[in-house]
Amino acid sequence: MTIDLEAETAAEAVIDRKRRTLTIRKYVPVLGTLVLLCIMYGIGIANYENFYNTQILLNIFIDNAFLLVVAIGMTFVILTGGIDLSVGSVVALTTMVSAVTLNHGWPAPLVMITVLVMGSVLGFGMGCMIHYFELQPFIVTLAGMFLARGLCYVISTSSIPIDDPTWITLSQKRIPIGSFSITPSVIIAAIIVVIAAVVLAWTRLGRTVYAIGGNQQSATLMGLPVARVKIAVYTISGFCSAAGGLLLSFYMSSGDPLHAVGMELDAIAAVVIGGTILTGGSGYVVGTVLGIIVLGLIQTIITFQGTLSSWWTKIFIGALLFLFVLLQRTVVRRTPS
């Protein structure tokens, strides 16, 4: 079955060109993040002594490992076109529960499993409400945010120090890489990043996440398990929040109801700056990692600058959010529907 090949070839050339630009366009947001990152890194190296030191980059990961893990969970949610405002509170709740149970003498592995299950269950519950009662993710996770933060204060209104040996080891241990070093938390975050990337790119769950974000109605009509995957996504976000909470409790060696206040905003910002489109269906885990580095670089540059105060961080993040949302909008608009 061949059909007027000549005409087809000419038409195909046009389509090919169009297709190539579209394939590239898919990566525009992430590439934008990468370019931004290089520029920022260049500015840092050009202006500040010692900025080239690789340890500076590694420190970004050390200081933001928990945020990275939380942002990975957020990436899943945003890819389906949802949002999870509860992450910061779940992180705080995790640190509180860890601190209290450890102080009651629970063994460290049991504590870790307990909080991870707790985070997942919270996420699962929110996912069920969003899917089965057709409530807006925004409002359900807002309730989850209130709930988890309120539970923190039910446990204790003040900070609880953690002196469990496992926690102390995990918090103080440095793993050398050449002449530099990282913490176990970075390794854990890296493992989660790799797993998340593989799940999103090469499993049915991951591809269904993209399908739902692309067009939930189509996904349903194509017979995909939309309900299961949507609930799974919030469960994953809950799990990641709990994991991030554990990393934060290593980092801070304490449980505090005031931990991670506003972290949901940082996580959303990292995901968006990392090129994931807020309406869902397009974005990559690697983008989120880049987004975290960008946030970290902003802080680092501001620290190196010395004269710039910390609040510029927020202004810069806001400006970047604006830029990237605009960039996404132009990209989405040009895509034929």
Binding site: R204, R207, T208, G213, N215, L221, G223
Partner: peptide, 30 residues
């Protein structure tokens, strides 16, 4: 259907096989 019920953000091949992708070692064999 009249309205395309596919996901335009995925590739042609994925749209044909999503939900029943060929797999190797548990991962999708693209």
């Amino acid at each position: 259907y009249q309205e395309i019920n596919l996901c335009t953000n995925l590739s042609v091949a994925e749209n044909i096989y999503i939900g029943r992708e060929p797999r190797r070692l548990g991962l999708i064999d693209f």
